[in-house]
Design a protein around this nucleic acid. Structure first.
Lengths: 224, 224
DNA sequence: TGTTGTGAAATTGTTCACAGCC
DNA sequence: GGCTGTGAACAATTTCACAACA
């Protein structure tokens, strides 16, 4: 679902995609444990806090090195720091929102990214009625200023929240402006060069997966 | 990431989770093809439209039966109907939004669910300032009315957009009210009984996965 | 003693490649 | 001739289970 990765760990091993997808869960759990004052945590406890199992936690962490102490567990502060580094969050990453409809506006107003290491620093739209307005403290620029805003704000990640018909063109513009990470909320496939990572969030797809399981539970409607 | 499934296809075979996760992509692609007037589609074309490969398309569809014609491809209308049924979307599913902050409000105003077979029909919040207001045509009820609204509106799916601290309690209330499918946007683990399916959307996690790949591309900052 | 780190086994998912059919 | 449907080969991921060790 994500483009091919050939990520390599400290020890020169490849990091499996499945492991990368779980790092944020550990990150989140560790932030919470750190706040609550815990100093050490076992793989079992971390697993519970992250919603996975202990074997996965140990195997996943082992790709990055040995940070635990046998018989004791992991140092919360040290492991949090280590995972932050593994995730490339030594410094905050700047994001731009393209498209300021319902979802785009919500992303601009949403404060939950900051403590995870991200800042939404710019936004653009094609609608003249929206250009110049301020949402969540960010002034909405014109679509044509995209490249300039990316450059001026050192933007690393594009959040694509336009209607589906515009998505591919916006993605092309983001890539041309130097953005190499795109989170696409538009319900359509978006193509990009190999070195650009495009991830996809489709809320309707999530609902459909739930509906699938709903459908399996219901008795078949009586025939005749 | 999703609770254990033991879904069984028409032929009595189990449907792999990976296949279920791709059905929405085929659904989306087929809706688009159907609109554009295509009458048949090959596995290769459908694969391109859905962003996967042709072998996956054929294998996935084969779990539900043989709906293609060798040498020709699949009938777009018939396959669309079949997938809609496989997904349990013979009738629309009703959803309730719990928590009407930035994201909750966006979900209430978002129109993109309707053509995928879902309707947001109710919303609740704990904040008295929000209760009684109307967002996206839906009147916001009080949290205490959750069970009543679920019952009155035949709600099948709960969209959980509260702050993390409230998420588990809200999930418990949804389950008590009879909801067995939950889409959790709060960045925390939510527990539920085995027969309840909880899926998770964490936007910050998606950004972190992008950051991981960003970090791998950058040269290590020069030491000294 | 308690918990990590990790090979090996088991499971799940993907791709190949081709027989079967239109 | 072209495309589906599917067993069989292959690859990725998860889980087991236990040696290593603070």
């Amino acid at each position: 679902m994500v483009s091919d990765s050939s990520a390599v760990g400290e020890q020169g091993r490849e990091i499996p995609d499945a492991t990368v997808a779980r790092l944020p869960l550990y990150h989140r759990a560790l932030i919470s444990l750190h706040r609550s004052g815990a100093s050490t945590v076992s793989s079992e406890e971390l697993a519970t806090a992250a919603g996975v199992n202990a074997a996965k936690v140990r195997k996943d962490l082992s790709y990055f090195g040995s940070y635990g102490t046998r018989g004791v567990g992991y140092d919360v502060g040290q492991l949090l720091e280590e995972i932050r580094n593994d995730l490339g969050l030594q410094h905050p990453r700047n994001c731009i929102v393209v498209g300021t409809g319902n979802l785009g506006a919500a992303l601009l107003s949403f404060g939950g990214f900051k403590d995870r290491g991200f800042a939404v620093v710019a936004a653009v739209d094609v609608d003249p009625a929206r250009v110049g307005t301020t949402i969540g403290g960010i002034r909405v620029g014109h679509q044509d200023d995209l490249a300039g805003l990316v450059e001026a704000n050192d933007v690393a990640i594009g959040l694509l929240t336009t209607p589906p018909v515009a998505a591919q063109q916006v993605a092309d513009e983001l890539v041309a402006a130097g953005v190499r990470s795109i989170l696409n909320f538009a319900p359509t496939v978006v193509e990009a060069p190999e070195d650009v990572v495009v991830r996809h969030v489709d809320l309707a797809s999530e609902l459909e997966i739930l509906a699938f399981h709903e459908g399996r539970r219901e008795p078949i409607a009586p025939a005749s």
